[in-house]
C-alpha cells in the first residue's frame, strides 16, 4: 500500500546529484515512518534487523553537544507519529469512541504503518481506513463489524464536507424530457450507504457527549470521568439495526439523512446511470406515485439531482 521504495543500505557520503538527494531522503523517510517503539521511542534496531539505528542514522545525521544523532531524528520521528495520529483522531471520533482510545490508537498506528500518507493533504489521511479495518478485523474485535461501518461512515463525511458539486437539476429541466428516457445523476459529494448498525445515531451521540463534556469541563474542571475506559462505558456500542443513509451537505453544512429501503434502491440506480423509469422499478411495485413524487421533490430541494449527458454527469466546480 506504500509507494515508498526500499530503504537504501547506506546514506550518500557526499551529495553531488539529485539521485544522492533522493537516497538521503528515502533513508530518512524510512527512519520516520517506521513505528515507534515502547514509550514512543525510536527503536534501537534498524529496519533491516541487522544494524542498530544509531549506526544507520549516524551515517547521515550529526550529533550535537546535547543530543545524539538518534535523539535528533527521534524528535522528527515522534512529531510525525503524533501529528498523524492526532489528525486521524480528529477525523474519526465515532471509531475512537467505539474502540476506546487505546485500541483506536493501536488501530491507527497499524494503519499508518501499512498505509503511509500518499496525499499532500491530511484531509485524505483516512481514505484507506475503511478498507484497512475490513481487511484486519482482529484490530477492532469484538466490535469489528460496527468498526467497519463507522469507518466507512466517517470517511463519507469527509468526502461530503468538501467534495465537488455539480449544478442541481431544476424542475423545468426534468419536465422537458419524458421520464422513461431521463437519466439523472447524483451529486458527487453525496454517498449512499447500507449499514448493519445505526451509525448515524451512534456518531451523533458521541458528538453530543463530547460537546457536553467540553461545556461541563469549562464550568467545573475534572467533574466528569477522565479515565477513557470509564468514558467509553457510558456509551454502549451500537446494536445491529439495518440502516440506509445518504451522507451529503446542504447549504455547505454536513448532514446524514435516513432513507427508506425503496428510496435507497432508487437513488442507487440513479447513481449507477439508470433511467428514472428503471430506477423506479428498482424501488418496488407497492410505492404510490404520489409518494415517489414527494421523494423526488425532496431530493431536488436538497440539490441531490443533477444532469447527466451521454452517460456522464456534468462536472462544474463551485464558483
Amino acid at each position: 500500500m506504500s509507494g515508498l521504495r526500499a530503504a537504501p543500505r547506506h546514506a550518500p557520503a557526499q551529495l553531488r546529484s539529485t539521485a544522492d538527494l533522493r537516497t538521503l531522503q528515502r533513508l530518512m523517510t524510512h527512519a520516520l515512518v517506521r513505528p515507534l517503539a515502547a514509550g514512543d521511542r525510536t527503536p534501537k534496531q534498524w529496519i533491516d534487523g541487522r544494524r542498530t539505528t544509531a549506526e544507520v542514522v549516524g551515517e547521515f545525521i550529526k550529533p550535537n553537544a546535547t543530543l545524539t544523532a538518534v535523539e535528533r531524528i527521534e524528535i522528527y520521528h515522534r512529531v510525525y507519529w503524533f501529528r498523524l495520529i492526532g489528525a486521524a483522531t480528529d477525523d474519526c471520533p465515532g471509531l475512537q469512541a467505539l474502540l476506546g482510545p487505546r485500541k483506536f490508537e493501536r488501530l491507527i498506528r497499524a494503519y499508518l504503518a501499512k498505509c503511509p500518507s500518499r496525499s499532500f493533504t491530511l484531509r485524505d489521511l483516512c481514505s484507506r481506513l475503511p478498507e484497512f479495518v475490513r481487511r484486519f478485523p482482529s484490530l477492532s474485535r469484538p466490535q469489528a463489524a460496527a468498526a467497519r461501518a463507522i469507518a466507512r461512515f466517517e470517511w463519507a463525511q469527509t468526502e461530503a464536507f468538501d467534495g465537488p458539486s455539480w449544478p442541481p437539476l431544476t424542475a423545468a429541466q426534468i419536465q422537458r424530457v419524458p421520464a422513461p428516457q431521463l437519466r439523472v445523476s447524483l451529486q458527487p459529494y453525496l454517498s449512499l450507504h447500507e449499514f448493519d448498525y445505526p451509525v448515524d445515531r451512534y456518531v451523533l451521540a458521541v458528538k453530543e457527549r463530547s460537546a457536553l463534556r467540553s461545556a461541563a469541563s469549562n464550568a467545573r474542571e475534572g467533574e466528569l470521568p477522565a479515565d477513557p475506559v470509564k468514558q467509553r462505558r457510558t456509551l454502549p456500542p451500537p446494536r445491529r439495526e439495518k440502516t440506509y443513509l445518504a451522507v451529503h451537505r446542504f447549504e455547505n453544512r454536513l448532514y446524514y439523512k435516513r432513507l427508506d429501503p425503496a428510496q435507497y434502491r432508487i437513488l442507487l440506480a440513479l447513481q449507477a446511470g439508470q433511467t428514472i423509469a428503471t430506477a423506479l422499478a428498482r424501488g418496488g411495485r407497492r410505492i404510490q406515485p404520489a409518494v415517489v413524487q414527494e421523494w423526488f421533490a425532496t431530493w431536488m430541494r436538497l440539490g441531490w439531482l443533477c444532469r447527466r449527458v451521454r452517460g456522464k454527469a456534468v462536472p462544474v466546480r463551485e464558483q
Binding site: L4, R22, L32, P116, R118
Partner: peptide, 11 residues
C-alpha cells in the same frame, strides 16, 4: 515527501 509518500513535516 519521497516516492509520493508524505511525512506532512517540514524536514
Amino acid at each position: 515527501s519521497v516516492d509520493g509518500t508524505y511525512t506532512h513535516d517540514l524536514l
